[in-house]
């Protein structure tokens, strides 16, 4: 499962799980990530600042004033030979989305690129069981895969200066959602009325690494109703 562990500066290590972007590899990353967090909290291990999963790697950052790399290697040894339980009850989330063309502003352009009708793009997106590889880029921004290869698209050559929060975007085999307004070069296919990130909540991120996501088509009226509830009531 773990291919290699190497030093990453003097206060971090990087665990390598393989070369590709594949769900099976990432599930190992997430398994070790969750297992390490569990061991750390059960044994009150101090000095570990961040454990960050990505597609095929896991970084452990520590405070050199409180622990050192020998302890980190010992910790990794504890999980190295664990049997991977892939079926660790992934958190399943349904995300409402509206694909109207005023939200899905790139659908028609994508239709030309992919030679699919916009309806076929939407249907394929709705059929896909997405898996969350990692979060990053900005708080709560999920990298989800994998789209049907027929929907393959590249980034815009000139990124947009501002994309609305809640925009659902695709590029290559990935789908993501903007938690905040942001510049960006991904293709916009729709918009969700859900709030992805709320710093005043204990679990601030709606979506977490390893979660499974499915999208649900909603009408503009439903969209407005949920949007109002999420964005207007809590200022």
């Amino acid at each position: 499962m773990i291919k290699n562990v190497f030093e990453y500066g003097d206060q971090a290590v990087l665990i390598d799980f393989g070369d590709e972007i594949k769900k099976e590899i990432n599930q190992n990353v997430i398994f070790v990530f969750k297992k390490l967090k569990q061991i750390i909290s059960e044994n009150n291990i101090v000095g570990i600042e961040n454990i960050t999963p990505s597609y095929n790697k896991l970084a452990i950052q520590f405070d050199l004033g409180k622990t050192d790399i020998t302890n980190i290697f010992k910790l990794i040894d504890q999980v190295k030979n664990e049997k991977v339980e892939i079926n660790f009850n992934p958190n399943k989330i349904e995300i409402p989305i509206n694909y109207d063309l005023d939200f899905g502003i790139d659908l028609e352009r994508l239709s030309k690129i992919t030679k699919l009708e916009t309806n076929e793009i939407i249907e394929s997106h709705l059929r896909t069981n997405f898996y969350v590889y990692m979060l990053g880029f900005m708080p709560g921004f999920p990298y989800m895969g994998d789209l049907d290869p027929k929907l393959y698209s590249k980034r815009l050559e000139t990124p947009r200066v501002e994309i609305a929060e809640g925009s659902v975007i695709i590029v290559e085999q990935f789908c993501a959602i903007y938690p905040y307004k942001s510049p960006g070069g991904w293709n916009i296919i729709g918009k969700t009325p859900l709030k992805l990130f709320n710093q005043s909540q204990k679990n601030p991120s709606l979506i977490n690494p390893g979660d499974e996501i499915i999208f649900k088509n909603i009408s503009k009226t439903e969209f407005q109703k949920i949007w109002k509830k999420n964005y207007e009531n809590q200022n």
């Binding site: 990530f33 961040n50 960050t52 950052q61 979060l135 880029f137 708080p139 601030p204 991120s205 977490n208």
Partner: peptide, 11 residues
């Protein structure tokens, strides 16, 4: 703040 880099927040 620590333990949040996995959800996109660095220290």
């Amino acid at each position: 703040r620590v333990s949040l880099q996995d959800i996109g927040i660095s220290k």
